[in-house]
Simulated assay, not measured.
Amino acid sequence: MAAQQIGYRGPTACAAAGITYRQLDYWARTGLVEPSVRPAHGSGTQRLYSFHDVVVLKIVKRFLDTGVSLQNIRTAVQHLRESGFRDLERTTLMSDGATVYECTSPDEVHALLQGGQGIFGIAVGVVWRDVESALSQLHGERVDTGETLIGQNPADELARRRNRAV
């Protein structure tokens, strides 16, 4: 675990993703989006969500708002989970309302649009930046110390990771 790993409590995750606490709780209990930093262990323990978790919560919300069924969203989230959320910020998720497609290049997006049916897309990079902006205004928590961080920008840690990977 990173020395400065940051987690976000339920109310903060809800505010950043634009969802209700009831949705958050239901999605955690049914395994749609579970907190990866610290799951709830009985009554009174605080779930902690990672930055990636909050991005996925906001993606789920956007799909629900456009009419995609929870079953299809669940399949898409499972696929993202299995891929290890690789290049999430460079991904576009497309849907025709029945199926969710993961596109990682403009050619893949173009190929889907050639089908002639109505398609909508979620540019995950835009969602990523929205969540970064929202969380920079909210409270995070250092996992190792429990210290509350106000206005902690998750982009700082993500930028360090990207620079190391290049």
Rank of each mutant, 00 (worst) to 15 (best):
A2W: 01
I6K: 00
G7Q: 01
R9C: 00
G10T: 08
P11G: 14
A13I: 10
A15H: 04
A15R: 09
A16Q: 11
A16V: 03
I19M: 12
Y21A: 05
Q23T: 05
A28G: 06
R29Y: 08
R29T: 10
T30E: 13
E34Y: 00
S36F: 04
T45M: 15
T45K: 15
Y49G: 03
Y49E: 05
Y49R: 07
F51M: 09
H52K: 14
D53P: 15
V55M: 10
V56Y: 13
V56D: 05
I59L: 15
R62E: 09
F63D: 04
F63N: 11
L64K: 10
D65E: 08
T66L: 03
T66R: 06
V68T: 08
V68H: 05
S69I: 05
N72T: 14
R74H: 06
T75Q: 15
T75N: 15
A76D: 11
V77Y: 09
L80A: 04
S83Q: 14
G84S: 14
R86P: 01
D87A: 10
L88H: 07
E89V: 07
T91D: 10
T92Q: 07
T92V: 13
L93K: 06
M94Y: 14
M94N: 06
T99N: 03
S105F: 01
L112K: 04
L113V: 00
Q114T: 04
G116K: 08
Q117Y: 06
I119K: 00
I122W: 00
I122C: 00
V131T: 14
A134F: 03
L135T: 01
Q137A: 04
L138Q: 02
H139I: 03
H139Q: 12
E141D: 03
G146P: 11
T148G: 05
I150G: 01
G151I: 00
N153L: 06
D156N: 10
A159R: 09
R162L: 14
R164F: 13
A165D: 05
V166W: 06
V166Y: 01
